[in-house]
């Protein structure tokens, strides 16, 4: 648990997403891609912390990035925080993606909506391993796809929008790169229907696939058992046993 200082808050063009850059007053704890932070919202009618996935960690500047969607009371209240304010975080939480488990040479990182958040850090991790990741990012419209230059620093970027305003028109699962290239690992985060569709693609091509779930949580540290997912190993805690799961462990019909 630590207080971090708000360095900047950038509202994205769609008005719904915002990026917080937080600076540590002491060195940030080591975070793995796919891990998350429980953010305390200091507003009287918001009781619980909010689980937010770690977007990126800039070790040199000792900064953590969070990409957040104004989805409800807590995340909306947080969007009015000011530069210089302190934010209390319990982090890093969860297991994260297993980028080093296999000797991936051609990993595909698939994100939908605000679910793209953990993929930037995952892409950076692959780059550090000497592997060029392929990002496949999808959203409803062009305004929902942001910071593309950041992703391009680490790998190739392919885009889809439902209205065709940027990249290929349609869903990520319909993108031509999926049929034109062979990937050896798939890492996904986004809306559940999107992740199920991408899991189906991975399963049918016999590619290992990890997805990041966001079941509603209370404690975030494995104590309360509120956020469980029904897996092949019984009810598993998304906060402590996940949030990243191999699709083979889930009971999804794919």
């Amino acid at each position: 648990m630590a207080d971090l200082v708000v360095e900047s808050l950038t509202t994205m063009p769609n008005g719904q997403y915002y990026r917080l850059i937080l600076r540590g007053e002491s060195p940030l704890l080591d975070c793995r891609p796919g891990q998350f932070a429980e953010v305390r919202i200091d507003q009287t009618d918001v009781l619980l912390r909010r689980p937010i996935s770690i977007h990126f960690v800039d070790k040199e500047r000792n900064e953590m990035w969070l990409l957040i969607q104004k989805a409800g009371k807590g995340t909306t209240a947080l969007s009015s925080i000011q530069r210089g304010n302190r934010l209390n975080l319990v982090y890093p939480l969860g297991n994260g993606f297993n980028a080093t488990d296999n000797d991936y040479r051609h990993p595909l990182l698939v994100g939908g909506g605000v679910g793209v958040a953990p993929l930037l850090m995952l892409g950076a991790a692959f780059r550090n391993l000497g592997v060029e990741p392929t990002f496949l990012l999808g959203a409803r419209k062009a305004l929902d796809l942001n910071e593309l230059d950041e992703y391009e620093k680490f790998g190739r970027v392919f885009l889809t929008t439902e209205d065709g305003s940027l990249g290929e028109k349609g869903f990520v699962t319909q993108h031509s790169v999926l049929s034109s290239e062979k990937f050896d690992g798939v890492f996904a985060c986004g809306p559940t229907p999107m992740m199920k569709a991408i899991a189906q693609y991975a399963a049918s091509h016999d590619i290992p696939c990890e997805v990041s779930l966001e079941n509603r949580m209370a404690c975030g540290i494995g104590a309360c058992l509120c956020c469980v997912e029904d897996t092949r190993n019984g009810h598993q805690r998304v906060c402590a046993d996940g949030p990243v799961f191999n699709i083979n462990d889930l009971k999804w019909q794919i």
Partner: peptide, 13 residues
């Protein structure tokens, strides 16, 4: 699941 709901100044489990 779902097993939890935040409510005003409280939570249901």
């Amino acid at each position: 699941y779902p097993r939890m709901a935040e409510t005003p100044s409280g939570m249901l489990n």
